[in-house]
Amino acid sequence: MTDMQETVVFQRPETLEDTYTNYCPGCTHGTIHRLIAEVIDELGIRERTIGVAPVGCSVFIYNYQNVDFAVAAHGRAPAMATGIKRVQPDKVVFTYQGDGDLAAIGTNEILHAASRGENITVIFVNNATYGMTGGQMAPTTLPGQKTTSSPSGRDVEIQGWPMRVAELLAPLPGVSYSVRRSIHDPRHINNAKKAIRTAFRAQLDGMGLALVEILSACPTNWHLTPVAALEWLAKHMLPYYPVGDYKISEGLQ
């Protein structure tokens, strides 16, 4: 007879607040919040982490994680994070931004923060639409994708091509880490967590701006069920936004 003991193998991380989220069913912001919380727990940096929340659905991260937060004006999270990190270099500073925030109104901020090589971590959540305002076309909206402001599908002749942020930032010398991950299945979720951990480690080692772009689902604005939304992500977003490492500084390998 063997002695067996029941152990907890998965539970809520301590950094995740014990509250209910206001996100729609199947919204993968919740998954990404949890991954960041797990990484903060594992690195033991909760007491010295400061997050910068964006404008958009994901602003509510300040209610859902048990770390200090500041909220920036639309798109200005990298600028605010720059200020916080420069004044308090011993703190771990990260921004959490959606695609309407980082890739549209905040493109200027992220490019210059990356160009200056600010020592911050950026978690960029790409769901190919504006979530909070009702599913309008974002710079990351796919060619042909129907949104409330492109009802017959995005026409690249008129509206141009979607922006690939991870590839865009990679060549800048101030960037230490630029990768793209997805959260549409358990394997990719695990890989996304590893990338988030590396992005925080890059900051702890003082290597420069680290960005993780994460492909995320917005079932409500895509007009799909949560399960169908993850399938749509895998089928339509992955070909245009390939998961991969676009820059890993030598010291991080």
Binding site: T2, E6, F10, P25, D185, N190
Partner: peptide
């Protein structure tokens, strides 16, 4: 639990001492 967007699931496993 890994896939749950709302972290609503807790997992226990029987492990040998």
């Amino acid at each position: 639990a890994l896939s749950c967007p709302d972290t609503a699931i807790t997992v226990y496993r029987q492990e040998r001492l």
